[in-house]
Design a protein around this nucleic acid. Structure first.
Lengths: 208, 208
DNA sequence: TTTAGTTTGTGAATTACTTCACAAGCATGA
DNA sequence: TCATGCTTGTGAAGTAATTCACAAACTAAA
């Protein structure tokens, strides 16, 4: 299959969230045009995005809401269960571990790690904090799919090295630094400072 | 000035964070090539990004680290102080209000709002929770620059309408929905579900 | 001063993404 | 059954972002 752009995947997520709302309202079909209006894009964009994966609509009618939802869930790999470990037993990690949407979408947090001696061995959100040095060994048994990296900037490169060595292929990164990983590891970074600076830029350069 | 792509602004933020690290290490100059390596991009990209705003380097030498940092801070509008209000006195809001990087970069939280009667009037992170219905009136006096929207999906559209009416031109959105705002309002959305789904997609479609 | 070695800044070329525009398919009603 | 009206799926066209490639500018050393 052709390489899919990250922007496309983000839009698919967005479409799915709309469809779930619409499904709850009981509507049976939706056109690319309505979907586009909800997502702030164009109907051609919607159709193009979907056409990368097949043809799911009926000409003259639109898309069946439950059918398209199901297809999108399949495309996005939801419905499977993903084993997640959280690295960094701090506030962000805790917020995520408690976040309902996490479990709802099949992301199951099965372990938590830290490098801080003071935290290791403590109970944390119904798990026991383990040392990062054990990650590789644990991963051989548990087979984690995703690592959430929520460590301070300084310790993050070392932590990420362990994650990669443990064979984990997907990282959700909250550390405010750029991760360097092999090409077969996917990283999504959530960086508040960067978002704020984006807003600051927009405010500073209005009307240019 | 020409329209600047969001991806460019994100990279500028990234470059700045590297420069700050390098400045602490005491290095005086850096080449586009080194910056590119740190940021996982190409030297041509770095030079192109910077050239949109002027020419800051010296041929044969590279960029002066303190000088380029300063320029980037200027471009990104840091150094100014931005007045921020948080809407939604929940966990995300609290985490942000306490987040040090927030204040360090000049984002000052001066008020918090909610629609939940039970929360209104309560103390919260050294502020008192006010009703969203008062936002427009308050904004006339306080002149907020940025609104952080951290409300449940259902109540978000109404909240955003108030924010827009209050004349606030930048929104950091944590609600898992698409905001509809006039063109002169800038929105950055942080949506965990979308990031997770991106990872899920990558894991499901490896090797295609 | 001259030469060798770097590195920038930037048009041109390339690649990626989005939008256009329309034939083809389906539903509905006559 | 046929005509009308809608909406999809998709090549082609257009726009945007990235990378190439090289002249120009600077440093440092001889």
């Amino acid at each position: 299959m052709k390489r899919i752009a990250e922007s496309t995947v983000r839009r698919l997520s967005l479409y799915l969230s709309f469809l779930e709302g619409i499904e709850r309202q009981g509507l049976k079909t939706i056109s690319s045009d309505e979907l586009a209006r909800l997502g702030g894009t164009t109907s051609a964009q919607v159709r193009k995005d979907l056409s990368l994966f097949g043809s799911f609509g009926k000409r003259g009618l639109g898309y069946s809401v439950p059918e398209l939802s199901e297809k999108l869930r399949e495309i996005l790999g939801l419905g499977k269960q993903w084993k997640v470990c959280i690295i960094g037993a701090g506030k962000i990690g805790a917020a995520l571990a408690r976040y309902r949407g996490f479990a709802e979408r099949g992301f199951i947090v099965t372990a938590v790690y830290d490098i801080d001696e003071a935290k290791i061995g403590k109970r944390w959100e119904s798990l026991t904090v383990r040392p990062v040095s054990e990650l590789e060994k644990d991963a051989a048994k548990q087979d984690f799919d995703i690592a959430v990296v929520a460590t301070p900037a300084e310790s993050t490169p070392a932590v990420v090295k362990q994650v990669v060595r443990a064979g984990i292929k997907a990282i959700l990164n909250f550390a405010p630094i750029q991760l360097s990983v092999p090409a077969d590891v996917t990283v999504r970074t959530v960086n508040m400072a960067m978002e704020l600076e984006g807003l600051s830029f927009a405010l500073s350069n209005r009307g240019d």
